[in-house]
Design a protein around this nucleic acid. Structure first.
Length: 226
DNA sequence: GCATTAACCACAG
DNA sequence: CTGTGGTTAATGC
């Protein structure tokens, strides 16, 4: 645990911006700021959850063990809450979270968090907005996942990560190929072949882990035609 | 039938 | 962890 001053935090959620200074005091006494390295597990599937998790800085993957292998459900970028469903939906974590980049997370006591929701309607509203945005994004991806061919899904995913997470067409790709497979819902071998193919056609270029999207229009086309 | 797509396996850097 | 080749199953002309 680190000493932290919630009221001065530069990374407040839009919900917590609404809190009063008294509420910030209570928040501070009932939360912990924890730093994670890339690859660190933030919380495990199957473990007891007593805190809400707020991603203050960094990027994490939300993943869940399926019948045969791991499925990445979502990539979350700061600032965002990523442990609300697992804290309020069940006592036991129904999914896991792992840092994809060095990250800092605030763990907030769930009883306190529940109190804020009860007492502060605007706070609750901001949370609902965030949860809804996530849900709509997920619906969008699930709708396509069963209808596009794999190269289309890969193209879509690369564009999505570029636009929504890094706001750039050139960035350090945060996932391994097998993680990308688990996110898209395909095999690691298919990812390898598709990425090689994209590279051979100069649509993208990998420089180590740095991805450069060279032909966004082609990628968009592949993403759409599925 | 024949072609395409993609998964699974195995093995090699 | 990634790249490839062989094989196999499903699907669509």
């Amino acid at each position: 645990m680190e000493n932290h001053k919630c009221i001065d935090c530069e990374f407040k959620s839009s919900a917590s911006k609404i809190l009063s200074s008294e509420e910030f005091d209570i928040l501070e006494k009932n939360s912990a700021l924890v730093f994670f390295k890339k690859g660190d597990i933030i919380f495990k599937q199957g473990a007891l959850s007593t805190n809400v998790a707020y991603l203050r800085t960094g990027i994490v993957k939300i993943h869940k063990r399926g019948v045969s292998h791991e499925k990445i459900l979502r990539i979350a970028k700061s600032p965002s809450y990523f442990g609300i469903p697992t804290t309020f939906g069940d006592k036991i974590n129904q999914y896991a979270a792992t840092a994809l980049e060095d990250s800092s997370v605030c763990f907030i006591d769930s009883n306190l968090f529940r109190n804020f929701i009860f007492k502060n309607g605007k706070f609750a509203y901001e949370l609902i907005v965030e949860l809804c945005e996530n849900e709509l994004n997920d619906y969008e991806r699930y709708a396509n996942q069963s209808q596009k061919q794999v190269p289309g899904l890969v193209a879509e995913t690369l564009l999505c990560i570029a636009d929504k997470i890094f706001n750039s067409s050139r960035f350090n790709f945060p996932l391994s190929q097998s993680e990308l497979a688990d996110l898209v819902g395909t095999s690691r071998e298919s990812i390898s072949r598709i990425l090689s193919d994209f590279s051979a056609n100069k649509i993208i270029a990998f420089n180590g882990k740095e991805l450069n999207i060279l032909k966004r229009d082609v990628l968009e086309h592949i993403s759409e035609k599925g």
